[in-house]
């Protein structure tokens, strides 16, 4: 709205309740996390100034540094794969009328993971991955008994197994977002490509993807936020195990603070985590800016 009132004092009255809640319970704790992060503090006794040492420790301590690396891997699973897969699939089924019965029903079901508590999702997948779980039963039934294992206890498979849950969570969402976006694309653009002699692949790269910019930006943002927090899922599925192979920053913050009593260190990692999240979101929004 361009012709709003120029009244700062009145505007403040409207904005101040939300602003004070936000400042008191989000920004102030965050700033105080930043100030804790410069101290050596066991959470109970007195704090000792520690300069930037906690920050260099984030990158020196293999446990903390690995947790950051794991969250980058999870971005691949939670964000990159679902967005890419969603784009390709949405393009493939773009001919399906979303008003058809199957179209409508699938919309509802595919959205379901978005509303379930991640704790419950984690419990379900933990059972699926267990030694006698659905996945191993399935592998045995199709003659792949040799590949069965306790997935979440395996150093090579635990992180990808959690990542796969991210694909489960995100792909449906992306598919539907992009599908609904494609319906709005001007059909003449596709006809133009056809006239030029381009096939489906050209149509995908030169029409579908550029037209879906806002949807891709949105999907990447929310899936990336999910990937970088990841606390709930990892906490119930592996609690960081085996041997720290699935530790993520959120869980490591919790562990540093409440298992190791290193509150200053925990806050330093928390600050690094929020900076990483912020930088990634900024990056996405820069790269996928509207033309």
């Amino acid at each position: 709205m361009k012709k709003g009132r120029n009244s700062s004092s009145e505007a403040i009255l409207f904005v101040i309740p939300a602003l004070s809640l936000y400042l008191l319970f989000v920004i102030a704790p965050w700033i105080s996390a930043i100030s804790f992060s410069f101290f050596n503090w066991d959470g109970i006794g007195s704090a000792v100034w520690n300069g930037f040492n906690n920050y260099s420790e984030v990158f020196r301590d293999p446990e903390q540094f690995n947790s950051i690396k794991h969250s980058l891997v999870l971005i691949g699973f939670f964000s990159v794969v679902p967005v890419t897969l969603g784009l390709v699939l949405a393009h493939l089924i773009s001919n399906l009328e979303t008003t058809s019965l199957i179209g409508r029903m699938s919309r509802v079901v595919i959205f379901l993971p978005q509303v379930l508590p991640l704790i419950a999702v984690g419990i379900a997948w933990k059972l699926i991955y267990s030694s006698q779980g659905v996945l191993n039963q399935f592998l045995e039934n199709v003659g792949l008994g040799a590949s069965t294992r306790g997935w979440l206890g395996d150093f090579n498979f635990a992180l990808p197994a959690i990542g796969f849950v991210g694909i489960w969570l995100g792909t449906g969402l992306c598919l539907l977002l992009f599908n609904s976006g494609i319906q709005k694309i001007d059909q003449h653009l596709y006809e133009a490509v056809q006239l030029d002699g381009g096939g489906r692949i050209r149509a995908f790269t030169s029409v579908t993807v550029p037209s879906l910019r806002p949807e891709i930006r949105f999907a990447s943002t929310i899936t990336m936020i999910a990937a970088l927090s990841g606390f709930d899922l990892v906490y119930v599925m592996t609690n960081g195990g085996p041997g720290g192979a699935t530790l993520v920053p959120g869980l490591e913050v919790f562990r540093l603070a409440f298992s190791y009593n290193r509150f200053g260190q925990a806050c330093a990692l928390a600050v690094v985590l929020s900076l990483i999240t912020f930088l990634f979101i900024l990056l996405i929004n820069r790269v996928l800016k509207d033309n």
Partner: peptide
Amino acid sequence: GYIPSDVNSY
């Protein structure tokens, strides 16, 4: 093989 191979998972 005295200990189950998936011991880390449970």
